[in-house]
């Protein structure tokens, strides 16, 4: 499988383009490309340092958020009901090729 392209807007508003490899979660793609994603819990939906915003159209194509994910997000800085996701919970998928994600602010 070939890589996905990902466009990332960081917390300063700068745009980065990166390759998202099939065996990575979105969090891993962000973190391993030096974006400031701490991922303190190693991707187990415990810390919310990997919080990102997606466009509503993209968000709507994704599955439901787990209870842990939702509870962490609701209390997170800038929570968007139809846009916030923990990027560690997003596996690689073809549908996500070319999407733009925005890093949520740290709190």
């Amino acid at each position: 499988m070939s890589n996905n392209e990902l466009t990332v807007i960081d917390r300063e508003g700068s745009t980065h383009r990166l390759e998202w490899e099939p065996d990575q979660t979105m969090m891993e793609a962000l973190r391993d490309n030096d974006l400031p994603v701490l991922a303190s819990c190693g991707g187990t939906a415990s810390c919310a340092t990997c919080h990102v915003f997606l466009d509503k159209e993209v968000f709507d194509t994704l599955g439901e958020r787990s209870e842990d994910e939702l509870e962490l997000l609701v209390e997170a800085e800038g929570y968007q009901e139809c846009g916030s996701r923990l990027s560690c919970q997003l596996d690689f998928s073809r549908e996500l090729n070319g999407v733009t994600v925005t890093l949520a602010p740290e709190d």
Partner: peptide, 11 residues
Amino acid sequence: AGLADFRPARK
């Protein structure tokens, strides 16, 4: 079994 208090607590 619930994370609702976790983030506010840290702050």
